[in-house]
Deep mutational scan, measured.
Amino acid sequence: EDDHHMEFCRVCKDGGELLCCDTCPSSYHIHCLNPPLPEIPNGEWLCPRCTCP
């Protein structure tokens, strides 16, 4: 699979289990988001950068 997502968290710059945005290459740990997510959501997810007006 050709995955163009970042291999590190945009916030802390560390790797591991990352949540990938469905519209851009950004990846995040769920605990690095503000507010943090309790678990990885099902379905499409947009990062804070893509949901800002």
Rank of each mutant, 00 (worst) to 15 (best):
E17A: 05
S26Y: 09
T23G: 14
H5P: 09
S26A: 14
C32F: 00
D3R: 14
P36H: 04
N34Y: 06
C20W: 14
I30E: 10
H5F: 15
C21N: 01
D22Y: 09
D22I: 04
L19R: 05
C50T: 01
I30D: 04
D2L: 15
L46T: 12
C32H: 02
C9T: 01
W45P: 03
R10D: 08
P36E: 05
H5Q: 14
C21P: 01
G16P: 00
H29I: 01
V11W: 06
P36C: 03
D3P: 07
L37K: 08
R49M: 09
F8L: 08
G16Q: 03
K13V: 05
P48N: 03
D3K: 15
H31S: 07
L37C: 07
V11L: 06
L33F: 05
H4R: 11
P48M: 05
S27E: 04
P53T: 03
G15C: 03
S26K: 05
F8S: 09
C21Y: 01
N34V: 10
C20M: 13
P35F: 04
C20N: 15
F8Q: 07
V11A: 05
C32P: 00
L33D: 03
H4W: 09
P25W: 10
E44V: 08
P35S: 06
K13M: 07
C32L: 00
E17V: 06
C50N: 04
C52N: 08
I30F: 11
T51I: 11
C24L: 01
P41C: 08
E17F: 04
C50K: 03
P35Y: 05
I30L: 12
H4F: 15
I30Q: 08
D3N: 15
I40Y: 13
G43L: 07
T51K: 11
L46P: 04
T23E: 13
F8G: 14
E44C: 06
L18V: 09
C52H: 14
E1A: 03
E7T: 02
G15I: 04
E7A: 05
M6S: 08
Y28F: 13
C50H: 05
R10W: 15
E44I: 09
E17Y: 02
C47Q: 02
T51A: 12
H5I: 15
C24P: 01
L46V: 14
P38H: 12
C32T: 00
D14G: 15
N34K: 14
Y28K: 01
H31K: 13
V11C: 06
H5D: 15
T23N: 14
E1S: 03
E1Y: 07
C12D: 01
W45E: 03
Y28C: 02
S26C: 11
H5Y: 14
P25A: 09
R49C: 11
P25I: 08
D2H: 11
L19I: 14
V11G: 08
D3I: 15
L33E: 02
C21H: 01
R49N: 13
D3T: 15
G16H: 01
W45S: 04
W45H: 03
D22N: 10
P41D: 05
G15H: 04
K13H: 05
H31A: 08
D3M: 15
D3L: 15
P25N: 05
H4I: 13
H5T: 13
L18F: 03
L37W: 06
R49L: 09
S26I: 10
P48L: 02
P48R: 05
C24K: 02
E1L: 06
R49Q: 13
P53A: 14
M6N: 11
D22V: 08
G15F: 06
S26F: 11
T51F: 13
M6G: 11
C9M: 00
P36I: 07
R10N: 12
L37R: 06
G43Y: 06
P38C: 07
